[in-house]
Amino acid sequence: MFRFLKLLGKNLAQGPSTDPFPAKEAHTPERFRGRVVVNPEQCVGCRICHHMCAGGAIRIEDNEEKTGYNFTVWHNTCALCGMCRHYCPTKAITLSTDWHNAHTQEDKYDWAAHYSIPYLACAGCGAHIRMLPPQLAARLYAHSPVDMTDLLKLCPSCRQLAAARREEISNDTHEQE
């Protein structure tokens, strides 16, 4: 009897243990894995996330005009394992803490995130390339003596030509000296 009273007192002092949701917003930890979010600025289309995704929730394909690619995340297939985030080389993928996922059947096929990421026309030949995101390029070529701003806008073969031309010019100047 005494134990019972002690427990009663303890529980009264503790207050209700019920989570206030849905009357109030529930507490969500910072690390909660809620929904995959892609930053299109940083995506280079390397498809490593597509390779990692166990359920096949990520779809990456060129758009009809071939001027860019569509990046789709199907939230209804995503197991929220975080493999895409972990292995994304440019850290373009993050997981938001948004867990409000319940939806009606009508919305089933709209429950996805679509991103359309444009290609860049090569300044030399006009071929479509995915330009290296500027932040990434700044990190990658931090110690490069060559100014990369224009070179980044070229496709690999035009860049090769540009490099050859650069070499030629420097050879010429050497000969003149």
């Binding site: 243990s17 930890p29 910072e30 690390r31 909660f32 894995r33 197991a79 929220l80 394992c81 975080g82 493999m83 972990h86 997981l95």
Partner: peptide, 29 residues
């Protein structure tokens, strides 16, 4: 309810109440 203490630990540290997704090849995530 006592188990919920551990569930909260899992949710706070790993981000999910059941599937921790802690391991990967060669280490942890």
């Amino acid at each position: 309810e006592v188990r919920e203490i551990m569930q909260d630990v899992k949710e706070t540290v790993y981000g999910n109440r059941m599937d921790l997704a802690a391991n990967t090849l060669g280490g942890v995530k």
